[in-house]
Nucleic acid binder design. Structure first.
Lengths: 343, 343
DNA sequence: GTGAAAGCGCTAACAG
DNA sequence: CTGTTAGCGCTTTCAC
């Protein structure tokens, strides 16, 4: 039992009600060119539009102009806490420009292409991609489809698409510098999957930072994924490997660091007394774990905002100011790092 | 420098290429009525459509039919970890039916109405609302606008809109039963804001469960919001109030419980030795805090899925199977609860 | 089972 | 500055 359905009021109704032609109404209601309308008519039209409760029909305008004021966002997993703030940033930028955002979770990479096809059918004006592996053919597919697109969080190394990313190398340098300043020398790295740009970038960041300090190259164990389980497994491998135990471990992200926590605790080692640990992302609640995690905070929301802004620039035909925006991460020192026990 | 823009292929192109009329193509490509087309023509049309790379233009079909295959979702804050799984559920249900989802963060309740107006302009087919206070006029606004809408996570007590919710009373009963079984008698409750349905429901759940055990009514402190800060403040009030210290505290959600942790730790009290704590939501990482939090797990993803399914039923004109779907929460016992130290 | 024709609501030339 | 006209791509009567 719905209430009386509100009678759809169109631009035509507004036109007849205010005694002008539809095209005049169309112009009056478009901010971009209401200036070409006389003050009186403008006021009249706006008034009657409000009075009648006129709501423009975007579907009609989309059909005519080919622009829907809609963008798509492809995420691997909205449940992963790095993505909500990114999405929030995108959404905020979109709202500020009068755009809406379609979100699609692309759990299985296989689904990306069909989802993209459906988004094209919906006539999206542009696309923000937070997925894409290294050398992903999807990027070519997107470019060839002639769609405006940008990447966020994961850079496109080949530069085929604009991107907004955090500086992975700097992030790892911040972690290493901190550990070195505390007096650590034997530093290991639990690296992210080397199939993904961030995995590579962070590993290189650790390596470079250690070189800069003229310290030996880190022992590196690669994780299968950015998960706690993968972190556990990698930490186990690290502990079981020969040689002296590292004094500190730089982890590719917080979940992996927490996986390392699990294994170290099970092995009877204390953090940070026996070993220091750093993460990356500053996920919610990592300040509540035991011990609170020293990590790298990323400007996730800002990343989303910037990516969306770049996209809108492209959509609106302006020259892009930059093809890659790199934002600065920040070190957050907590209790999982300390000077080594024995000098 | 874009690649050559792909020439838009329309239904008309498919028609001429296959030597039939556009309306035939239209029918052939619509699953609902391709049956009225002869096998040969059907095959021919499908083949040429594929060959030309035809993509239907949803904007055109939307203009004609008034259906966009698009729904809107209003969230208070996607950054709050309860919402991503809900959104994921909604999105999955939508994708399964060929719909897309507009997400809007409604940080300030004042923004809800303008956002809604814009969504209407976009011709959304329906709306999932995860916002709405008790007695929220927004609900009337939505109903009066003649839009299909459902609520998720927060119920509409007045029954004006269908809803998918978790059973708040049962959730609190599970927590109380657990604490009573451990031997606790003096149980307090840090309640959620009583302006919000969940805040009221959970409080009533605690009260009822204690009555069921013939135990005294709980001491109750109301939190300003579902945040850690509010939890700290409420716990401080509880500790400073007169009377014997409670043996256990049932918190309205995990963040509030973690706020309680902060204050108890600062006061030199140990959990669970001196006091037991329970949460609600089973947020990511609450199993990693010190001590791991006993809490209530909600079927968030399922909630989103069910809400979306109800919405689609309404959109597609079927009678709703239920006006409120209530799903079962589940107790997750960890280390923040234990028998009281002294019997 | 298929074709013809009209039109959803809006915008973009082109006149005046 | 405003009106006229045409049509975006699709669905849907209504004929045949």
């Amino acid at each position: 039992m719905k209430a009386a359905k509100p009678p759809k009021v169109t631009i035509r109704d507004v036109a007849t009600a205010s005694g002008v032609h539809v095209s005049t109404v169309s112009r009056a209601l478009d901010p971009a060119r209401r200036q070409r309308i006389s003050k009186e008519v403008l006021a009249l039209v706006e008034e009657t539009a409000r009075r009648l409760g006129y709501q423009p029909n975007r579907a009609a305008s989309a059909l005519r102009t080919g622009r829907t004021h809609t963008i798509g966002v492809l995420l691997p997993d909205i449940t992963n806490p790095v993505f909500p703030p990114i999405l929030q940033g995108i959404e905020a930028a979109a709202a500020a420009r009068g755009y809406f955002v379609f979100v699609a979770n692309v759990g299985d990479p296989q689904l990306a292409q069909p989802i993209l096809a459906r988004m094209k059918a919906q006539q999206i004006d542009g696309l923000v991609m937070a997925i894409a592996l290294r050398e992903d053919p999807l990027i070519d597919f997107v470019r060839d489809s002639g769609m405006h697109a940008v990447m966020v969080n994961r850079a496109d190394e080949s530069g085929r698409l604009p991107a907004a990313v955090s500086d992975d190398r700097l992030a790892m340098k911040l972690a290493v510098d901190h550990l070195v300043a505390l007096g650590h020398r034997r530093i290991a790295h639990l690296a992210g999957p080397q199939t993904v740009p961030t995995g590579v970038g962070r590993r290189q960041g650790v390596e470079q930072a250690l070189r800069d300090h003229r310290l030996p190259a880190p022992r590196i164990v690669e994780c299968d994924s950015y998960s706690r389980e993968a972190g556990q497994q990698a930490m186990r491998v690290l502990l079981e490997s020969s040689g002296k135990r590292p004094e500190a471990v730089v982890c590719c992200n917080d979940l992996v660091a927490l996986g390392a926590y699990d294994v170290l605790r099970a092995a009877g080692l204390r953090i940070p007394r026996d070993i220091s640990i750093t993460g990356h992302n500053d996920m919610p609640l990592v300040d509540m774990v035991d011990p609170p995690l020293t990590t790298i905070r990323l400007p996730h929301r800002e990343l989303g905002w910037q990516a969306a802004e770049m996209l809108f620039q492209a959509i609106e035909g302006q020259a892009l100011l930059a093809s890659t925006v790199v934002l600065r991460p920040e070190l957050v020192v907590r209790a999982s790092t300390a000077a080594p026990a024995a000098a």
